[in-house]
Amino acid sequence: MTLLLAPMEGLLDFVLRDVLTRVGGVDRCVGEFIRVSGSLLPDRVFFRYLPELRNGGRTLAGVPVRAQLLGSDPASMADNAARLAQLGPEGIDLNFGCPARTVNRHGGGASLLREPERIAAVVAAVRRAVPAHLPVSAKMRLGYDDASQALDCALAMQDGGACEIVVHARTKADGYRPPAYWEQITPLRQALRVPLVANGEIWTVQDAQRCRAESGCDALMLGRGMVADPGLALALRRADEQPHEEHGAAPLLPWSALAPHLARFWQMVCEDLEPGQRAGRLKQWLNLLRRRYPQAQQAFDEVRVMTDQRAITQWLARRVAATAADPVPMARAA
């Protein structure tokens, strides 16, 4: 089983990549998309989105990170891919799945799923522009309004030279509304030579097992499910190694073990992000953690009205210390 950590604009950035790969279980990450709109981007843009380029293309925990480009012009995408390749990413991924209205209005992301021939041209141009040893992969949705062109798009990516395709099992029109249609990945997997990775609505071990069964894919990409349950990849590893064991619904990583990771996350946020973004990022993560941890609800309620960085730092230090000293009563109190 291969487990990838998804890119999520404004959420799963280099800070969370660092924290989540420290928890463990992830084989590879994909960075947030870097938008290519016609000009050759300066190096500082690539480094801003993918600081791991300064660490050999890996997170500090040693997990490789593939850079992702988003654009529709083959020549411009090729030029930027060639420049990016010189900076040492693990590989280059191409985004044909972003459902954001602004991105699609300008002909990027999922909007290209209506033009398989354009997809093939973009992938082929990038593949020719970067060294042969560097992987070029792609991410897609099942389609724009429907899945009628899913196979054409996947074949276009393969024929253009993509070595791997992640399939988010929803259309652009579906957005992020459940369910994900994992079973619609199966005909793509059967028709293609390159490996497919299933993505979408994987929140628990049970979700992952159903996704693998319905899609036929042994490789999964985890997004919001991993953010809400940082121990999810480890839990999937354990379930894969012990298929006959009972695996409970509770997170594998207890709240007491997660608390130090929250502290590191806050430290990195304060060091690397603009002051106006810091409190919101912590609240954003706690908000998702509430889905899997009852204790996160109490934490979210306490920090929700805070804006002062020093006050949040002091609150978090007390929270971590209390959790480490007496994790069971805190869990009951939450």
Score class of each variant (00 low, 15 high):
L112W: 03
D146L: 09
D73E: 15
G225R: 08
G216W: 12
A169W: 04
L258P: 01
C217N: 05
L113I: 06
Q277F: 11
E245C: 14
A334L: 02
R22L: 11
A263F: 04
I92Q: 04
R264T: 13
G71W: 08
W182R: 05
D174N: 11
R292Y: 11
P135G: 06
R212Q: 15
G31V: 01
V126I: 10
P51A: 08
R118P: 03
T2R: 14
P131D: 08
E302G: 10
A325W: 04
Q314A: 14
A239K: 07
E183L: 07
P230F: 10
S76N: 12
Q314H: 14
W182T: 04
A331G: 03
A257Q: 14
M1E: 10
E9M: 15
L12E: 10
R127E: 03
D301Q: 15
L20Q: 05
L222T: 04
L60N: 14
A147D: 11
R141G: 03
A333M: 11
A317C: 11
Q284Y: 11
L50G: 03
A321I: 06
V328S: 13
L87T: 07
R193Y: 07
A263Q: 13
G24S: 05
G231R: 06
R189Y: 01
T186R: 15
D326T: 10
E241P: 05
C163F: 03
Q277A: 14
Q184W: 06
Q206T: 12
R237C: 09
N104C: 14
A100Q: 08
P116R: 01
L288R: 12
R318N: 14
P327F: 02
M226V: 15
L220N: 10
S256R: 13
C153L: 00
P89E: 06
D18V: 02
A156N: 01
A299E: 15
T186H: 14
M268D: 13
G225I: 09
D13R: 12
Y176K: 05
G71M: 07
F33S: 04
K283E: 09
W182Y: 05
L20A: 08
W315A: 06
M157N: 01
L112E: 01
K283V: 06
G24E: 05
C98M: 02
Q314Y: 12
A81V: 10
P243T: 08
T59Y: 07
A125Y: 06
M268C: 12
L236R: 07
F265C: 13
P254K: 04
P178A: 13
L192K: 00
G88N: 10
V63Q: 05
K283M: 09
R193H: 13
